[in-house]
Design a protein around this nucleic acid. Sequence first.
DNA 1: TTAAATGCAAAGAATTTGCATAACA
DNA 2: TGTTATGCAAATTCTTTGCATTTAA
Lengths: 148, 148
Amino acid sequence: MALEALDGLVLRLREDGVRITTARRLVLRAMVDGPSHPTADELLTTVRAMAPDVHASTVYRNLEELERLGVIVHTHLGHGPATYHLATEAHGHLVCERCGLAVEAPQDLVDQMADGALQRLGFVLRPYHFAVLGLCASCAQGAPQPAA
Amino acid sequence: MALEALDGLVLRLREDGVRITTARRLVLRAMVDGPSHPTADELLTTVRAMAPDVHASTVYRNLEELERLGVIVHTHLGHGPATYHLATEAHGHLVCERCGLAVEAPQDLVDQMADGALQRLGFVLRPYHFAVLGLCASCAQGAPQPAA
DNA sequence: TTAAATGCAAAGAATTTGCATAACA
DNA sequence: TGTTATGCAAATTCTTTGCATTTAA
């Protein structure tokens, strides 16, 4: 399934006139197969496990190109590096400022806000680029704070 | 009015045991009197008009301290430097990805989303840290794109 | 007088860019 | 064979930090 998704992407990109290099294929594979929300640096590490000479700038350039082609999107979950997803998996994020927990925002809540902004301001929201911060249930109760 | 606000802040900070230095007073004045949504660098420029020797690191350290004390908050409206407001003026932002237009998010839309997140996930949202991106009415119609 | 704040220089993280070389189509 | 992509080094942008000196209270 994951491999098929990769093959499909490769075909589609080739049709768009994009050259499929080793580095590019590995970046795509890491996006399709690997953990969700990788940073550029995490992708680099994954890619280097197969092709140690790939450089950070190559990963950044590939991510930029794939985003331009609509294959992936990037999101900021907080300070620190951007995270990347497949565009087909774009969704809003709620992130706890205290413990770092990131959850997917319920789509209907996101839609409700987008509808309101459209009707009232004509603004077409794409509320995926930045997370919405706050405190998760545990942290809001004054309880834990595992990570930062 | 603006000056009174400044005096009030200074008094409050002094009560908190904060020393009021030239640089700190000027940063506060720029926040109270100056244009809204300044970046650290814009604040530095404003401050330097009165006190040319103030350094960027001093401005950053003041902003950090004022945020810690709950006097100001910072917001990311897009890529690029953070912007700062008085905490009393905290509000959500909608930013156009195409032309850069930033408008205040209608509070009831923000509240509606926050209520939903609280009831469904126990998540206490503070949706002020990151802007919500999208396309403004003009840009959504394929029309203009003044800035980047 | 003394803890807190500053100026300065330097480091840091994340990302981008210039350019000669390599490699996909 | 001719672009397009890559490796590498270096630059950029925004922000933080270490440290000796100054200063508000």
